[in-house]
Amino acid sequence: MPNMGPAGWASLAQGVRMRDRASEEELARLFHPHLLALAASRLGDRETAREIAQEAILAVLEALWEGRVREPGKLPAFVVGTGRNMIRDYLRRKGRRPKPLSLGSDDASISDPASGPCETPPLEKKEERDGVFEALRELKPADREILFLTLAKGLSPREIAVEIGLKSETVRLRKSRALKRLRRKLKSLTRKGLLDHI
């Protein structure tokens, strides 16, 4: 996995702009899971989620080919923003609101899109978005770094172990504990309606 700081994202964006096939595939590999997860959680309809994720990837590729991405170092924000816009457009066309995020609920299955509009309105405020940031901030610095290397840089526990000088088993354990803490914290935020921010 390449080092995906702003320079790495800019390099990937540049590769796509140059129609480098490997860069295009890398972009899809990195972002498609994220977009599909985003769409699935908001739409609750697997086929539509697949279509939207696919369309969002294509829209990002087109924007890069045509040089329309102004800050290639912030490629993830552009990709996620594109996905969100497409979901919003879809919901607007269908006259629906997004499916509420239900962390900690006991839902047995994903709701049927035909079952009508969801009740929870979208939450847009900045402080609501910052719930995740604050939860991350409360973690121990080493745990935060492990999560960063895992999720933002895509490193395996073994690679992280080499990077920060811990045993890979310790990395795995700390990551698991950190996620557990975040899960607890974010579930309480969700109950207060602070997480869903489409």
């Binding site: 985003l38 995020l101 960063f148 974010l186």
Partner: peptide
Amino acid sequence: QEELELVRAIQEKLWE
């Protein structure tokens, strides 16, 4: 899906 959404939200914040 809930678990995925939670980790996805964290990933997005870490990217940002």
